[in-house]
Simulated assay, not measured.
Amino acid sequence: MLKRAKALFAVALTALVGASSVGQAAEVSTRQLNMPQGVTEVSQAAYDIHMLMMWVCVVIGAAVFGFMIYVMFAHRKSRGVKPANFHEHVGVELAWTIVPALILIVIAFPATNALLKVYDASEAEMDIKITGYQWKWQYEYLGEDVRFMSSLRTSQDEIYGREEKGEHYLREVDNPLVIPADTKVRFLLTGNDVIHSWWVPDLGVKKDALPGIFTEAWAKTSEVGVYVGECAELCGKDHAFMPIVVEVKPKEEFNAWLAEQKAAAAEYASTIGKAWSMDELMERGEQVYLTNCAGCHGVDGLGIPGVFPPMVGSEVTMGPIEKHIDVLVNGVQGTAMQAFAAQLSEVDIAAVVTYERNAWGNDVGDMAQPIDVLNHKNGQ
């Protein structure tokens, strides 16, 4: 029996040595089993505390179980040892009270320092307002006049199995959040409708986005790259379809990107009074519809019976265009139809209204212009 045990031990040891030689595979396996280390001070602090607590638990577990195994082996009945008979021991009771208390006091210091770091969003160099919507994110660079929506880019055909799923299935967006490297960025989070949670593990950020309340978090990293997260709060039927993508750029590239966004915003402002053609509105409207409306009303405009109304032949799409614009701008109280005034631009609202009124055989024939949407917002 002893020889067999030694042989099995030798085989196991050989396998472990062979596996350890595959460095990359071992590293990947470790990353999969352990907590992600992240790329920010906050994520590093969380990782350090995690590792400290784990090793404290390992040492305590090894000591306790090691002592138990020794006692069971050295004082077993087969050796003629007779058990002691006592009801209490002051020294033992003091030990198992004082020692755990000291351990808690010791680990409280690094844990407190980590928490202070997590909540210290002061002296930020940039503020970004993040608003959670069902089911997308809005990013606003405060003081820069830059604001945009970030929506899932994965197509409905991939989601419902009509075509093969892509490499970044449910992990891609049309407009990622872009932040500069080596810059402390403060995030101000809120929700528009229900509770969402903005979670990017590599940045060490996980904060609830609560309607009517602002919470804050921050991130600073020198690691340029793309980091992916998701909504971590069950927020409705498309909860799985609102990923988060953060792109960290060098400061020079970020400044160039921000300048482009400001120029695009200024260019957009000049197009509100432009008379768009039917073809332009229909092309843009289809993309807006697939991104923002198809999840509820269906790619074919037939909706979900008993849950979401169809767009084909409905009173809204076939009725007065002013009413159609109002539904998009202000939503419908008491229903799942939310207001899109803050989510979509005047151009996008005009385009999707035009598309809905002239797609799937509706063929109403009229058009909404961006200036019509702006006038409606202003009560004109």
Rank of each mutant, 00 (worst) to 15 (best):
A5T: 15
A5S: 15
G18L: 08
A19D: 12
S20G: 10
G23R: 14
Q24K: 15
S29A: 14
S29Q: 15
P36E: 08
Q37G: 06
Q37H: 14
T40E: 06
S43Y: 02
D48E: 03
G61R: 02
V71A: 14
F73M: 13
R79F: 05
V81G: 01
V81C: 04
E88C: 10
A95M: 11
W96A: 07
V99S: 00
V99R: 08
V99N: 12
I105D: 01
I105S: 12
V106P: 05
K117R: 09
K117E: 07
S122C: 02
E125R: 03
M126D: 09
D127T: 14
I130H: 04
T131Y: 03
W135A: 09
W135H: 04
K136Y: 09
W137P: 03
D145P: 08
S155W: 00
D157Y: 01
E167L: 14
L177V: 08
P180Y: 02
A181L: 01
R186A: 11
L189A: 02
P201I: 06
D202R: 10
P211F: 10
G212D: 05
E216K: 04
Y227N: 10
A232P: 00
C235A: 14
A240G: 05
P243M: 08
V248I: 15
K251W: 00
A256V: 15
W257L: 12
A259R: 12
Q261S: 14
A264D: 11
A265C: 15
A269K: 11
S270G: 04
G273E: 05
K274F: 06
E280Y: 02
M282F: 03
G285V: 04
Q287D: 08
G298A: 01
G306H: 04
P310A: 10
V312D: 04
E315L: 10
E315Q: 13
G319V: 12
I321N: 05
E322S: 11
H324S: 08
H324T: 01
D326G: 12
D326N: 11
V327K: 10
V327W: 07
V329H: 07
V332K: 10
A341L: 11
L344A: 09
V347A: 09
V353F: 00
Y355F: 13
R357M: 02
R357Q: 00
W360K: 03
D363N: 10
M367Y: 03
H376M: 13
